[in-house]
Design a binder for these strands. Structure first.
Lengths: 225, 225
DNA sequence: CCAAAAGTGTTCCGTCTACACCCATGG
DNA sequence: CCATGGGTGTAGACGGAACACTTTTGG
């Protein structure tokens, strides 16, 4: 490859992943202690550098896979962060990505392996560099899109009860919802299908299990709760 | 500065500006012929490289200033584009920015100086690299936010008529709006103030000029059309 | 006097909100 | 039999959509 742009500067580019999960009525974020200098030991998002021969999306999926062992996860770019002094080490431009995973898919031993924890999204500690801003932006984005895109299902198992689904919405929106109105709206959405299966974990009576029909969404990608 | 990250790759980072304007009932984008290799002569967005000692926002404002001679312009990041082969020259990650300007603030001689033109947003030619995708994303974003943020005023002079404002909305949304309903909604927004001034350019009768009260918006930053 | 754009209200319909009780079951 | 969570309907308020005519004035 010719060097067309040799007179310009090159910089480090990294990706940082905001991994959201949902557990026990709470929205969680996967946070860990930074394992490299500078900032070793500080609370931080999990990230990595973008290599010469991978796209930024590939880098984000690679980092997410390394952290969670999971592939085919919902992920989207949040924003590029590029203040000059944002990283105390060297000039690094970082692109934040937001991932949504089902906590029960996450192997617990990885928490130890990577020294990470599920932290309540409403009790985030002080984080390395500008990572607090990244988390806040990701949360804002999530809140903004939760009603117009089928995001919530990524935080739940394939089969879920309507109470679980409602709890996800309440956790993300930070407010309680009316059960009857919520269920009325759900009924109006064909892509959310009731199955014959009953979940007996959460109550003696048992609750119907529902499923999100991904295929139906792909055919007509419109969603509004 | 120590070299903490020496084992990682550095890449070129650029910014590309999607500059929207509004003129004669149409939404326009500022496009030019690329002035450097590779791709010299192709239709392209106007961009530039991010320097070692400037933030990506600063780079975007510098590029926009160079192109338009304007400062304090509304601008926001659209998205980072980082496919490996996106630039035919070398590996370049580019961060797209969207700017909204009032066309009558734009000095016409700059069109010649930079070899750029105002192109109809609904008739964008084939552009260099992934710039078509950038424009499309910026347009989608604009459409999505036009009703919940006071963006439209950036495309108009300080004083504008309600017909002009409606035309901006129609151009961005790509559909006609009902005049009476539109004006009813405008009347409900305190930040949009009627002045005593009359514009006689567009009609014999004359139309009242309105103004967006920026201060009022800063105090309570809520907007919904 | 007429063309051209500005300006102005009402009705209807659908959507959102508030709200409380019965059901099924395991222990 | 009772505690626990699951499940259901209605009425009133509100907001959005449809819709047509009068006003002003420069040429």
């Amino acid at each position: 490859m010719a060097s067309f742009y040799a007179e310009h500067d090159k910089v480090y580019v990294a990706v940082d992943c905001i991994v959201f999960g949902f557990d026990k009525k709470k929205l969680k974020v996967l946070l860990g202690k930074r394992q490299m200098d500078p900032g070793r030991g500080e609370w931080s998002l999990y990230g990595g550098f973008v290599g010469e021969n991978e796209s930024i999306d590939e880098a984000a999926y690679r980092v997410l896979y390394h952290l969670t062992g999971l592939k085919h996860i919902y992920m989207r770019q949040v924003e590029a962060f590029g203040a000059v002094g944002r990283d105390p080490g060297e000039r690094v431009i970082s692109i934040a990505y937001c991932a949504l995973i089902n906590v029960s898919d996450y192997q617990e031993y990885l928490l130890v392996k990577h020294d990470v924890e599920w932290v309540d999204a409403d009790a985030i500690p002080a984080l390395y560099s500008d990572h607090n801003i990244m988390v806040k932006k990701a949360l804002t984005l999530l809140r903004k899109h939760i009603n117009s895109e089928p995001l919530s299902f990524n935080l739940l198992p394939d089969l879920f009860t309507l109470t679980q689904l409602q709890l996800v919405y309440e956790a993300i929106l930070g407010e309680e919802l009316d059960k009857r109105n919520f269920r009325k709206r759900i009924k109006a959405i064909d892509m959310i299908e009731k199955t014959e299966l009953i979940d007996k974990n959460s109550s003696k009576r048992g609750a119907a299990l529902y499923r999100f029909n991904k295929r139906m969404y792909q055919e007509s990608p419109f969603f509004r709760l």
